[in-house]
């Protein structure tokens, strides 16, 4: 990718990209799901990733998190090449992820869910005995209160509603103090009254917790409001990139959504 304008412009010194993909390509049989995609996410940004169904958004996320191995190209996190790393190692290196459908530990209490999320990350004290130290306990309480689940801390997570499970997952993601948080359709399945809260939560994660956010979203109003920049994929290719205002008026984007080539 040495002739790529974007890649050539960034690197040497002063690169603020905390996450970047260079020429990432993923094929499933004859289908190229992600085709030579470059993405740069800079520290502190909230970046949106949009595109019609089947555009390759989730596949790109999977290549970044290590769930899938890219056929070509590379992924770097905090300046380190993590292309061939296993998923758990990338997670420990500072990449958090939330799914569209929730992935909580249903048989554990809400509090235990948060503790598990933190244990492989920062918390060092009491690791051997596994006794969560007081700082960790305090952090758990703080995050539970923040997402308004403090009253449900000792309830099994599996008993809670979808929306509540999403909040648990959000708190879990923050427990690990990720540098970069990938969110796959955070607004999907959330009732409209909670949407405002969600925007607030994500902004807080970004500003107070200093997590850089990279999110896939179908809800256009939501993504236009929250994102600093947006990448657009269609048929696996990156067709546009820029601030929300320019994406909204981009003819290629409109064509892609309307199914025109």
């Amino acid at each position: 990718m040495s002739d790529d304008v974007d890649a050539a412009a960034v690197d040497p010194a002063g690169d603020r990209a905390v996450l970047r993909t260079d020429g990432v390509t993923k094929r499933f049989g004859g289908l190229t799901a992600v085709d030579d995609v470059d993405v740069r996410v800079e520290e502190g940004e909230i970046i949106g990733l949009i595109g019609p169904n089947g555009a390759g958004k989730s596949t790109l996320f999977n290549c970044i998190t290590g769930r899938l191995d890219a056929d070509e190209g590379s992924v770097s996190l905090l300046g380190e090449d993590v292309t061939d790393w296993p998923e758990y190692k990338i997670a420990r290196a500072g990449l958090g992820r939330m799914f569209q459908e929730t992935r909580v530990f249903g048989d554990m209490t809400v509090r235990k869910n948060l503790l598990v999320a933190a244990q492989e990350g920062g918390a060092r004290v009491g690791r051997l005995l596994g006794r969560p130290d007081s700082a960790l306990q305090a952090r758990t309480d703080e995050l539970l209160a923040y997402v308004d689940l403090d009253g449900l801390a000792d309830v099994r997570a599996g008993r809670l509603s979808f929306g509540q499970q999403k909040l648990i997952e959000f708190a879990m993601a923050l427990m690990a103090e990720p540098e970069v948080l990938l969110m796959d359709e955070p607004a999907g399945g959330i009732n409209p009254s909670m949407l405002e809260n969600l925007i607030e939560y994500i902004r807080t994660a970004n500003e107070d917790e200093q997590a850089t956010i990279f999110l896939i979203e179908h809800n256009m109003d939501f993504v236009m409001e929250i994102a600093d920049r947006i990448y657009v994929l269609a048929h696996g290719e990156r067709i546009a990139e820029g601030p929300p205002a320019s994406i909204q008026n981009d003819q290629r984007v409109l064509d892609a959504y309307l199914g025109r080539e």
Binding site: T65, R67, P86, E87, Y88, K89, A91, R92, G96, R97, R103, V104, F105, G106, D107, M108, V116, A117, Q119, E120, G121, M172, A176
Partner: peptide, 14 residues
């Protein structure tokens, strides 16, 4: 045991 996928995501070496 409850969810290997989620476990990997929080950094557990499954």
């Amino acid at each position: 045991s409850q969810n290997p996928e989620a476990a990997a995501l929080v950094g557990i070496d499954v």
